[in-house]
């Protein structure tokens, strides 16, 4: 049985996702590098991975979030960046977690909208409630008629 000697002991790695109309992953990376102060930054297609001492990472994350608070999202990662055990090149395909991110990435615009709306509303103004199952905004009858007319014309 081979012995396992870990790298990056005592560090944390976090994913930073950006889903913003005003900031690309590349721009995010540039600004993050400026603020990095020794925290390891790896650019990815969806944003960044940052790795370092927990306190340093927390500080950097706080700064990064401030770039575009409602469009930047952060999540813990178990592996350090570029780990061959998770690398697409070695696995032949994306690790399963990537597809899970894909699933939630589609929803981020709704979350951004929620964060913006909550910022806008006064404290206590919002009446928070879990989304009702299957409830969708109703289509106005006049609007429906218009749509039918357009289709048939």
């Amino acid at each position: 049985m081979a012995e396992y000697i870990p790298d990056y002991v005592g560090t944390v790695t976090k994913y930073v996702f950006v889903e913003s109309p005003s900031m690309t992953a590349g721009e995010l990376a540039l600004r993050a590098y400026e603020a990095s102060e020794g925290v390891l930054i790896k650019e990815t297609c969806f944003g960044l991975q940052v790795t370092g001492e927990p306190e340093s990472v927390d500080r950097l994350i706080e700064e990064i979030r401030a770039f575009d608070p409602t469009h930047i999202f952060v999540k813990d990662r178990g592996f350090p960046p570029g780990d061959p055990r998770r690398c697409r090149a070695n696995l032949g395909g994306a690790r399963p977690g990537y597809l899970g991110h894909e699933r939630e990435f589609r929803l981020l615009r709704y979350i951004s909208r929620g964060l913006e709306e909550l910022d806008r509303r006064e404290e206590g103004d919002a009446e928070p409630a879990p989304p009702a199952r299957g409830k969708r905004p109703l289509l106005d009858i006049k609007r429906l008629q218009e749509l039918i007319d357009i289709e048939e014309s």
């Binding site: 709704y110 909550l118 879990p130």
Partner: peptide, 22 residues
């Protein structure tokens, strides 16, 4: 415990975030 569903539109997004925050 808070149990809820994923939002599927912007309105549900607002409700989702508000519920989690509360």
């Amino acid at each position: 415990i808070l149990e809820l569903k994923y939002p599927s539109n912007e309105e549900e997004g607002v409700q989702f975030v508000a519920a989690v925050k509360k």
